[in-house]
Amino acid sequence: MIYLINDIITGALIGLLYALVAMGFVVIYRASKVFNFAQGELVIIGGFIVWFTTMQMGLSLWLSIPLSLVLAGLVGYAIERIFLTKLIGESVFSMVMVTVGLLILLRGLVLLLFGPAVRPFPIIFPLKPLFLGDMLIPMNLLIGGIITIIAAVGLSWFFNRTRSGLRMTAVAEDHLVASSMGISVKESIAFAWIVGAILSTIGAMIFLSGKSLTFLASDIGFAALPVALFAGLESIGGLILAGVIIGIAQSLTTNYLDPLIGGSMGSVVPYIIMLAILLIRPTGLFGWRTIERV
């Protein structure tokens, strides 16, 4: 029984980590109507920035973390300026393909710059798990989960309640309409990518803390994808619920179903949930329903 509870708690916390990475997808989508396939690559670039500032430059964590976040924001801004500004008002296909191009471009660049070597990642959150009675809670995931919830509540409030957040929401509706209402689409997209890159870097810190860093870690981007779709691409608050559900489903499958069938069902379960939700309710749990008119 205690194992079951432990699995559920760990699963939920991993789900919250997915939700944090997925928040990158959603924030970029909510403010620019671009679905960023290269989210996993942003995570890995964030990881390398953190590694560079702490391990290479030897800064203390209190200095390197803010510096990394600033650098990550700059990277996000640079990507937006180079690739995305020129596509404002273009078709969905162009946007999707540019981010798919970015996905392999960034992966290649990371590989060219840093090579395939395995690197130690700094220990940012304490490694010692938290014991509550018999329950064992991984500390980094717990802190990460708290950060996720704070970020979700904050960003959710920003997008739904503040004036500038609502402007970005208009951009996500339609670039042309938004710009004809006097909203700067450029600014909105730039903001989206900066926040997206910063969220990815935070995700990288939680995910990699005390582990090793290779370019393969970018797979978390694809692991987070089902969470973003399950919640619905426009809902930030919904990510928490979706992340927890998918995390628990994955954890339970890995621990109870996989030993029976001797396979890695756990890694596919999120995708099966994603396919099911896309078929039953394409907009996800809390996404917007759009009505099409001719």
């Binding site: 690739f83 596509l87 273009e90 162009s94 393909m97 540019v98 798919v100 191009g101 970015l102 996905l103 392999i104 471009l105 960034l106 992966r107 290649g108 660049l109 590989l111 060219l112």
Partner: peptide, 15 residues
């Protein structure tokens, strides 16, 4: 890696 960089760049540039 080179293939990825060039192809990714080509896709983005063409788009």
């Amino acid at each position: 890696a080179g293939m990825n960089v060039i192809l990714g760049g080509v896709i983005a540039l063409f788009m």
